[in-house]
Structure formats: C-alpha cells, structure tokens
Amino acid sequence: MWNDILLILDGTLRISVPFLLAAMGGIFAERSGVIDFGLEGKMLGGAFVAAAVAHWTQSAWLGLLGSIGIGIIFSMMHGFASVTKQGNQVVSCVAINIFAMGLTVVLANAWFGMGGKTPQLPKEARFLSIELPFAEAMRDIPVIGEIYYELISGHNILVYIAFLAVPITAWVVFKSSFGLHLRATGENPLAVDTTGISVNKTRYQALLFNGILGGMSGAYLSTAHLGFFVKDMSAGKGYLALAAMIVGKWRPYSAMFACLLFSALFAIKDKPEISEMLKGLVPLNLIESFLEMSPYILTVVILAGFVGRAVAPKAIGQPFSKEK
C-alpha cells in the first residue's frame, strides 16, 4: 500500500511538469493583463520543435532551446496581435492554438513522413533520469530514505527545473521591481503609464517569459516523458494548466498545488491497482472513463466557484490605449 502511494506520488510529480511550466508561463502573461489561452499551442509547438531539433542534433538541450524559440515566436505573435494591434486576445489565442495544431503535423509529415509523428529519439537525445547522490545508499532507510529514493531522486532535469520555476516565478512576481510593474500593469495600466513605465514594454517582457516557459513545457512531453512527438500530443494539457493557474488565483504556489491535484488524478488513472480495488463495485471501464474525465470535470466545478471565487487581474483582456 505504502509503496503504491509512493508510486502514485512519483507519477504525480512526473505528470505535473508540463502543467507547472505552462501555468507559471500563464501567470506571467495574465498578471500583466494579457489573456493566455494559447498555452496549448505553445506546448504543442514546443513538443514538436524539441523532438525535431533533438533528432537532428542528437541533443536534448538543443531541442529544449528550440522549444523555447517556438514558444517565444508564438508569444510574440500573440503580443503583436493583442498588445501592439490591440486585437481580441481570445481570438488571437485560439488562432495560435489551431495554427500550432496544423503546423506541427504538416511539418512532421513533410520532414519525417511518419503520419505526423517524429522518429523515436535515442537515449542520448533525451532527458534521462538523474540519480541524486546517496539515493541508492539511502534506499532502505524507511520513510525518509524511501521518499528520497522514489520521489525526490531519479527524475530528469526538467522535473527539477519545473519545480524550481515555481519559487523563481513567485520571487519575480512578488519581490522584484519587474514584478511590481507586472502586477500594476495587470491591475491599472493607465496608472502605470502615468508613472513613466511603458505598459506595452512590460507586457512584451511578460510574454517573453511566458513563451520561454510555455515552450519548455512542450519539450518535456517529447524529449523527456516520451521520446518522440505525436500529433495533438498536448491533448488539452495547456488548457488544464491555464485552469490550474485560475484555480490557484494567479499565485505561483497555489497554482502549483492545483497542478499537482490534476496530475494526481491522471496518476491514479494510470495505476491499474486502483481500478482493481474498485473492480467488484462498479464496471471497470466505467471507472476508467470516469477517472479520465475527472480532471476536466474538476476544472469545471472549481471554475464555477464552488470552491471559492477567483478574482482575475482587473485589466485582463483589455488592450491598453490612451487616445480614445
């Protein structure tokens, strides 16, 4: 039993990585007042580019760099449409998501000819698990050693980066000068402008971080979690990350817990033992289906404010313009 729980928690951590990275990216954009439904597209684009670059260069790190590049390209497209040209931000996000959906498959097919898939990456071109010091030695120490061995050690570098991204985001948003500008821009852009700070510049800076993190979330899917890209691989994870961010009220640590909650549901679904336990009570495939849709249902329920209402940054979705 204890072992099962450890394994589920371990799975939760692995699954939560793309959610975490994307949610932190979302926090940057939305705290500055720019809606970001486009995390899904950045994740998908990041996944494809990372897989393709890693395949060509045989380097997971260059793949990661590539995913950051496409993330930034997408977030700058969003910035151009919604910050510079003051277009509808939701429409811009939907455009980017659909564009990414098409572009990744078209390119994958043209370059690799495998029906929208990329070739399996060899070990050297993937992010592999890292054994932390003394993990093996501590393995047999009850509880602490087990937790260290199973949960904390033995993940790939992106897992650690993702969990490091949370305190970093929290510090930047709440403790840095840039964070003050960021939050003020999302709350009252006019006030920010009168203090001599450029609202649009702040938003572009926020989108830069947003693109980096959004792209990285995709790299995890294709170069760490699986060893290849497959069409529609993000499968709604970008939207769930967005939901986690809203549930977390645009705060990094709360959003992290929401991400972990969603991930736990996926981890439980992936564990046949759980289904096994409930086997006699309800039809098996019904449980599987229910577990599969539970993160989505949970999102809907939480967003409906059944668990406390989330108050968005006041100026979110509004393009900034002085001259009427």
Binding site: G87, I96, F99, G102, L103
Partner: peptide, 18 residues
C-alpha cells in the same frame, strides 16, 4: 498533409479575427 487546412484555418483566424 491534410492538416495544411488546419494551419490555414489558424492563419485565417489570426488575420481575419485578432
């Protein structure tokens, strides 16, 4: 690939919408 249409669709939403 057939997904070329999806790509075009994304661009159309971007330019005709946002």
């Amino acid at each position: 690939d057939r997904h070329m249409v999806v790509l075009i669709q994304g661009l159309v939403i971007l330019f005709a919408g946002a």
